[in-house]
Amino acid sequence: MDSNPFLNLLKRGSNVAGSAALVLLCVHLYAAFFVAPEEVVQGAIQRIFYVHVPAAVNAFLAFIVAGIGSVAYLWNRGRAWDATAVASAEVGVFWGAIVLITGPLWAKPVWGAWWTWDARLTSTLILWLTFVAYRLVRELAGGGEKGARFAAILAIVGTLNIPFVRISTEKFRTLHPGNVAKAGLDPTMHKVLFLGMGTFFLFTLFLLGKRILLEELRDRRLAIELEGS
């Protein structure tokens, strides 16, 4: 149907990932509510954990991919790399928004406040703002090669900033149930958590594939329009 093998692969791959993700989502939702045991201290509210943490993992993953795609783009100027960077920055902002919404929903009953400037939430917010700005830079620079180049610089610097943001906010203050809590996690809870991460990762692949496809189609349309005029 399509002459370009790359686009074909993208289409088929993202469709497979999307279908698998939908099936796994049903399993994950069932597991999160009916398989995972009730947490002793927190009670039912802890179930938010099974969407919050997988979303956070996928957000950071997407931001890192955006950074790597940007380095590759500045290196060889391949449009596909730029499309990868735009797509993953957007997917990262999406997952980040989920993290920033579910975090306060969990925190209010447990900590008694919607927002506590906890380390993990703060670092997510800071990085999320950087990649929102990424989008803004692209749009204000008028798209095209120039916008891609400027945005790539921002994405690289933003990705390099991740460890600094994590370390500084961690030291700033943390109330977060961190590694200690995870080590003592019930094995069933662990499995459900990993199922969630896998499910969301498939969604990330699906969204990335479709979003890159969209960039390619837009390029093609612009090229035809340019040819016609």
Binding site: I126, L127, L129, T130, A133, L136, V137, L140, A141, G142, K146, G147, R149, F150, I153, L154, V157, G158, N161, F164, V165, I167, S168, T169
Partner: peptide, 22 residues
């Protein structure tokens, strides 16, 4: 980078403050 967008007064703080958070 902000200069390249043509709206640097608006864009610069948006880029700089989150990056300078650490």
């Amino acid at each position: 980078v902000a200069g390249g967008t043509g709206h640097k007064e608006l864009v610069l703080p948006l880029l700089l403050i989150p990056l300078a958070a650490p």
